[in-house]
Design a protein around this nucleic acid. Structure first.
Lengths: 308, 308
DNA sequence: GTAAAATAATGAAATTGCCTCATGATTGTA
DNA sequence: TACAATCATGAGGCAATTTCATTATTTTAC
């Protein structure tokens, strides 16, 4: 009976719902419970006296009425985002500096589109990538050689805050005709006789080594390569196996170039955080950059999950 | 400290504020208290860390930040209005019938623009004006010769509901060189020796006669005319005085063609209601028509006030 | 210039409405 | 068929918004 009118909150929910395809997933995306969204959607349907979705399908389908509201949501949220950016610029000015230190190679896949979008919105902010791969990107922050560091762990450090970006699963990739290609889950032991292909970085930065192989005392042969496509090629050519983010290899899996398997029974989960100097955490363009990264990434990368 | 995010509610407040020029007036427009709006605006300013208005002026002025949010409000509310109309059409279909019975001559001033706007949004609804001026427009409703009646009083009647439109003040107009032209307030007695010019309708439909002259036992000479401009002409030519809605004569007052006075110490307040058959009251195009009338009228007519 | 009226700000109390929790129902899947 | 995942629903708690009561400020009128 609550005749509560339409609010931006509802539109945000609709957007999340369209992206996730299920109420429970969307709930995670907007940091509410499934129950909250269920109530919210029911209220919306009551308000308009129209069904907005067909619930009995997976992913759930929008009715024409739902589509109409979704279209509104897209239009409106773009306008609101623009206005809020303008408000931030009015408050803090247009200019600033944003030098990004990157620890992982694959990060470029999602970083580039996000940086492009950001550049549109903050043309006066100097955007840079700190070249080279540093074992300690957070150190660059404190020595003021970078303003933001992408890293996979949030180790407490004075004057530094960590903002969660997203979480994803690392999968093992192998040639399609690999003897174990049909095995859905690999354990550490399965890797003992394999050649592991990875980026040329220290072991501490390789989640597979640090979290799986080392604890199990397994030490396979190694081979390194700088480029993602090169690693894929090597794997497809049966020169070894590699652990890669699911979202990075999904296109190759879809095209049937390679096969993949889960690492360990519950999978190897990886997380990404952005580290900032505490003083910079409130800067509007910083917050907007992080927001853009999340938005762009969730929109384009498959299989991401939210990170509290 | 409430970091509550922007909601449509806030944007509606901003629109009302821009139209009214003061917090208390805007509060009436959105059916909240002045206090509620004051809190709401403060919360908005806190949220963005920016002043949105200069308070010390009358009417209050928007800062650049306020202007930016106001611009957003205009864009968004247009989109939302369009979407909500589409939702209504999805629910109830496009077509319908809307024959309007009008009791007062001046109503055409605001009815025409509203009808034009409505026609854009509901092209499939048959829009008509029931010709002639009927003493009992509500009767036309029950005999199904009209679907909506504009009237100045809400007399309870079975099967009929009254929706408030707006309230306004009737003023007395006279020639600029009339002996009493400088008198700011006229009483009934002042009219005893005047000629009263009015539309050719029964006395019960003339608020001045019914509410002021008859109670005071004053019965001035009369003269009638069909057209508003003709009445203005007669008044300017010293052939008599007339009672007209302020919003109808404001242009002529501004140009100095005529003078005006308040009727009675507290003014002669008039109200307008739309009467509908109870069954039709929930129809989307009916509700939208009423909404359009209010919106258009408040936007274009000076001196209106809200009617609960 | 002062008094009166209108308008705005503020804090506390009260209400409303939203969210979470707990649980049951439904759908899809092994 | 049973299990897992997703969704629905009602009750209860809590926080955000509104109102109320009052004070402060500005505008208007004389």
């Amino acid at each position: 009976m609550s005749q509560s009118q339409l609010e931006l909150r509802h539109l945000k929910t609709l957007l999340a719902l369209a992206e996730c395809g299920s109420v429970s997933q969307a709930a995670k995306r907007v940091f509410l419970t499934q129950s909250a969204l269920s109530h919210q959607l029911k209220a919306l349907e009551d308000h308009y006296g129209l069904a907005l979705f067909e619930r009995k399908t997976q992913p759930l389908r929008f009715t024409p009425a739902g589509e109409r509201l979704l279209a509104l949501a897209r239009e409106v949220s773009a306008l609101v985002a623009g206005a809020e950016r303008d408000m931030a610029r009015l408050r803090e000015g247009e200019a600033g500096e944003l030098r990004i230190a990157v620890e992982c190679h694959t990060c470029f896949d999602w970083l580039m589109p996000a940086m492009d979008a950001f550049r549109q919105h903050w043309p006066a902010v100097e955007l840079d990538i700190v070249s080279g791969f540093h074992a300690d990107p957070v150190g660059l922050l404190l020595t003021r050689r970078a303003d933001l560091a992408i890293c996979s762990e949030a180790e407490a450090q004075d004057g530094v805050v960590y903002q969660p970006l997203f979480a994803y699963e690392m999968v093992l990739i192998m040639a399609k005709d690999h003897p174990l290609a049909a095995k859905p889950v690999w354990q550490a032991d399965d890797l003992a006789s394999e050649t592991l292909i990875h980026y040329p970085v220290p072991d501490v930065m390789l989640d597979l080594v640090r979290k799986v192989l080392k604890p199990a005392g397994v030490n396979p042969a190694r081979r390194t390569s700088e480029l993602t496509v090169a690693i894929i090629q090597l794997v497809a050519s049966r020169r070894g196996v590699a652990a890669m983010p699911f979202w990075a290899v999904k296109p190759y899996l879809d095209r049937g170039y390679i096969a993949s398997a889960r690492i360990g029974d519950s999978g190897l989960q990886s997380e990404l955080y952005a580290a900032l100097r505490q003083d910079d955490a409130a800067l509007a363009y910083m917050r907007d950059f992080l927001h853009t990264v999340r938005e762009q990434s969730f929109a384009t990368l498959p299989g991401l999950s939210v990170l509290a």
